[in-house]
Design a protein around this nucleic acid. Structure first.
Length: 299
DNA sequence: AACCACACCAACCGCGGCGCA
DNA sequence: CTGCGCCGCGGTTGGTGTGGT
């Protein structure tokens, strides 16, 4: 029920995601977090655009995505919010834990639209009509937007990848979700963070979370060997070999901080090498969407 | 069994907003 | 102020499933 896989002129794959691609994406995000959607597929060994990866993760692979039929309560919430806000699917999703905006949108178009259309013909929701006709933002929407999940909104439960990463020490600040893309520069300091993932062994769970295939039958090859080779020579203390034929070779090795640093060096002018910290930068790069309440409960 | 029309939904696309230099 | 890069949102597409004839 999905688009057939195809490859565009730039070599970017489109269409249906294979299980292997899912595994790679999940394993990569589990290990490194989301630091830049555009760069991520390259380092995860995926021939996909960042947008596609983001969408796949958000709508399908994210651990707390709820599948299955909508409950009556969920339907009511959607209908009520739609009456109040119009087509603000992303806001709806915040009110329906585990549901994605895309899923809600699809459900609306396939199930609820007709149902509510019949009702609306009788009694159109006054505030929606007003908002749509005047192109003004309803007050409730303004308030909703005001409370948008700013990265410092400690009460907002961000979608958390923390659960994937049992061995890690929690960051000391509230979570960043979408802001991760600019994390290298914007990264808050995590002085209290003691875990340095770049020097940790890959946990078995990291791979198991990617589900299914064992390491032995997982074929992993880096997407851009030349790029990788340059990357290898850019770092001062890189210990990684330039080719990766097996999942184990890439994901399970000890990761040296310099690997990431050198990757940044390679990504000029993404980062000014002069400003690259000599100490491990894992904490800055490895920002998680983070649910403070779960953190509190863990303390 | 074969065909058709519609339903469903994952994925794509374009645009706007935001942050940074 | 402006341009650029990136992300998220909402609209749309297109392939598959399913039920009816």
């Amino acid at each position: 029920m999905v688009r057939a896989p195809s490859i565009d002129k730039n070599g970017i794959k489109k269409g249906e995601w294979s299980k292997e691609e899912d595994d790679k994406l999940k394993a990569y995000i589990n290990r490194y977090g989301i630091w830049n959607w555009r760069q991520l597929p390259k380092y995860a060994g995926l021939s996909r655009c960042g947008k596609s990866c983001r969408l796949r993760w958000k709508n399908y692979l994210q651990p707390d995505v709820k599948r299955g039929n909508f409950t009556k309560e969920e339907e009511d919430i959607i209908i009520n919010l739609h009456n109040q806000l119009g087509k603000k699917w992303s806001i709806f999703a915040k009110h329906l834990p585990g549901r994605t905006d895309n899923e809600i949108k699809n459900y609306w178009h396939t199930h609820l639209k007709k149902r509510t259309q019949g009702q609306n013909n009788l009694t159109p929701p006054s505030n929606q009509v007003k908002a749509e006709s005047s192109c003004q933002t309803p007050q409730i929407l303004k308030e909703e937007i005001k409370r948008e999940p700013s990265q410092t909104d400690n009460n907002h439960h961000q979608i958390s990848t923390l659960g994937l990463c049992q061995g890690l020490t929690s960051p000391s600040v509230s979570g960043c979700s979408t802001g991760l893309s600019r994390s290298y520069y914007d990264a808050p300091s995590h002085q209290e963070s003691s875990g340095n993932i770049w020097n940790q062994d890959l946990m078995v769970e990291d791979y198991e979370l990617a589900q299914g295939s064992s390491c032995s039958d997982f074929s992993f090859s880096y997407s851009d060997d030349s790029n990788m080779s340059n990357l290898m020579t850019a770092g001062d203390h890189t210990t990684i070999t330039p080719t990766y034929e097996c999942f184990d070779d890439f994901w399970s090795q000890l990761l040296e901080t310099d690997y990431m640093v050198s990757s940044y060096k390679h990504q000029q002018p993404f980062v000014d090498p002069v400003n690259i910290p000599s100490s491990p930068i894992a904490d800055e790069v490895f920002l998680w969407s983070y649910d403070l309440s779960s953190d509190e409960s863990n303390r």
